[in-house]
């Protein structure tokens, strides 16, 4: 199973916000789109940062309350691990476990193609296990 299969199942929708958007706007976008992370693309559409619910918690913890004037680029995470369509689910899970992050944008030739989250991958694992069990039961019964 590869990331291209995960994207085929979940769709390629990615929510982005401009680097200069305010933190308040980014939070409102995440709320409206019901996502836990947004990507921040450069002019060519390649992601240069990610802003997640964990960043929001850290912002609250710091006591920062200037949500309307603070730009998302000032608080986003800039070092992001990028995945390719051919990356295996196991490799992606391994990277997430080691790096303790939850989102991998999928990029090829500088183009953003989608995003996979830890939730997507755990769901795939559960689906696979359920399917395997069903297939085995059907096989034994046949």
């Amino acid at each position: 199973m590869q990331l291209k299969d995960v994207l085929a199942a979940k769709g390629r929708r990615v929510v982005t916000v401009p680097a200069k958007a305010s933190i308040a706007d980014a939070i409102r976008t995440m709320h409206a789109e019901k996502v836990g992370a947004v990507l921040v693309p450069d002019a060519a559409g390649c992601p240069i940062g990610i802003f997640t619910e964990r960043d929001v918690v850290h912002l609250y913890a710091s006591g920062d309350r200037d949500f309307d004037s603070l730009a998302v680029e000032a608080r986003m995470t800039c070092s992001i691990v990028i995945g390719q369509l051919s990356m295996s689910v196991d490799e992606a899970l391994g990277l997430m476990t080691e790096g303790r992050f939850r989102h991998i944008p999928v990029v090829e030739d500088g183009k953003l193609l989608g995003m996979v989250s830890i939730g997507d991958l755990v769901k795939i694992r559960l689906d696979e296990t359920a399917q395997e069990a069903k297939a085995l039961r059907a096989y034994i019964a046949s």
Partner: peptide, 17 residues
């Protein structure tokens, strides 16, 4: 949860402090 922090505080006009 982080999701509550994201969806129910600033997104709904509340002050975390």
């Amino acid at each position: 949860t982080e999701r509550d922090a994201l969806f129910r505080v600033v997104a709904e006009g509340r002050d975390p402090a």
